[in-house]
């Protein structure tokens, strides 16, 4: 039953996306910024593609909304903030840097540093031990 419902849902999505909304391109400069921004934003309907690549109707609406914001003089940060305020951090593929994501952003570099240190210490210790024996 769940499966059938899922099929129906996708049907609705497919057909409704075929119907009305279309992208309304703005100036070339706006389009370049839109492109850059929307490749870093998640389409919430088909959650695995970016806003840039999605054909979903909501994605088109949001692209048009972003065009309006850019044409209205908003900065990139303000556009992202506009969307985050409505849909949450989930909407951006670039996680914000804050206390919750410090481990995410800096963890790998700390790990690389520790890894290199451990390797050097181990190699040194090893050659000291092996060097002692003939």
């Amino acid at each position: 039953m769940m499966k059938l419902r899922y099929v129906l849902l996708t049907l609705v999505v497919t057909f409704s996306s075929l119907s009305v909304a279309t992208d309304k391109p703005s100036t070339a400069a706006t389009e370049v910024r839109l492109k850059r921004l929307s490749t870093e934003l998640r389409c919430l309907v088909c959650q695995n593609s970016t806003l840039a690549d999605s054909d979903a109707e909501l994605a088109q609406d949001l692209r048009n909304e972003i065009r309006t914001l850019i044409d209205g003089g908003k900065t990139d940060e303000e556009v992202v903030a506009f969307l985050v305020a409505r849909y949450g951090d989930f909407v951006t593929f670039r996680p914000p840097v804050n206390a919750n994501t410090a481990l995410l952003w800096f963890g790998p570099f700390i790990m690389l540093f520790i890894g290199a240190l451990v390797l050097i210490l181990m190699l040194k210790k090893r050659s000291a031990v092996l060097g002692a024996e003939p």
Partner: peptide, 23 residues
């Protein structure tokens, strides 16, 4: 870390984030 971080954040009740290509 990047793959599982959204799950970890969610599991700790800290909300939902996406980690994608920019990361």
């Amino acid at each position: 870390l990047g793959t599982l971080y959204p799950l970890v954040i969610d599991a700790m009740g800290l909300g939902k984030i996406s980690v994608g290509p920019p990361y």
